[in-house]
Design a protein around this nucleic acid. Sequence first.
DNA 1: GCGCTTGTTAAAGT
DNA 2: AACTTTAACAAGCG
Length: 270
Amino acid sequence: MPELPEVETYRRYLEETSLHQTLTHLYVEDTKLLTTDEMTLRQALIGKQFTGTRRVGKNLFVLLDAPYVLHMHFGMTGSLEYFRDEEDTPRFARIVFSFANGFRLAFVCPRKFERIGLVEDIEQHLLKKKIARDGLEITEHELALTLKRRNALIKPVLMDQATVAGLGNWIVDEVLFQAGVHPEKISSQLSDTEISRIHAAIQLVLRTAIAEEAIYRRFPRSFLIHAREWDVSPYENADQHRDCPRCQGTIQISTVGGRTTYFCETCQSV
DNA sequence: GCGCTTGTTAAAGT
DNA sequence: AACTTTAACAAGCG
């Protein structure tokens, strides 16, 4: 699930594998994934090199030796894979960049919710898409301004990229658990202390996830994420006991803001 | 083989 | 009019 920590991991991966090599070929399986016309994209990329990267929230920008930037969004299931031989092409490699050194970088898109294309200017793109400050960079004051203004449940407010960029479904659950705030609390009714705890929890969860390269089973035992069943549907196991890592109580599973939500009734107050 | 999942956004609701 | 909520999108997987 490509939230901020996964995209940061992909960014580092691309930096380590794919910079400073001339692009020789672009394979496009499905133009629906492109936000730029295929011919325009091909002409813009062939003969150029990736020179650097920048990530804001779940958005990855790849800098080129050209006055434009390649933008990638990984949707719900996208990833990157670097490989050489044709027979090593990963499944769902729907966009593939070939380099002069014989290696290739695949934009792997199992469910076609991913997007890739050119942008003229990063700041302009962020403004147009209403993408707020990155979760690692937002100050408590900036976060407080938005949270006090919004008259909606805190969970969807935190998932809104216009509040803070990079948080998705499981991270918001984890943040609210670590902060001791109920997911259905009204954002504008949060106390200063609760906002402060939410800000600190965002930092804790993001830094921990990045340090472990977003591999969930390596996260500390104090994290709620271990109560999630990643391989089965939640309702299938709804009667199964999940212990809260703090109070050993049962973790609740419900729907908040249209998304499956895990929380502890005892540790997270409304 | 149905139903669930993920992030974003257009449409609907207030 | 501005803000909030909901549903649809694609498709693999349990």
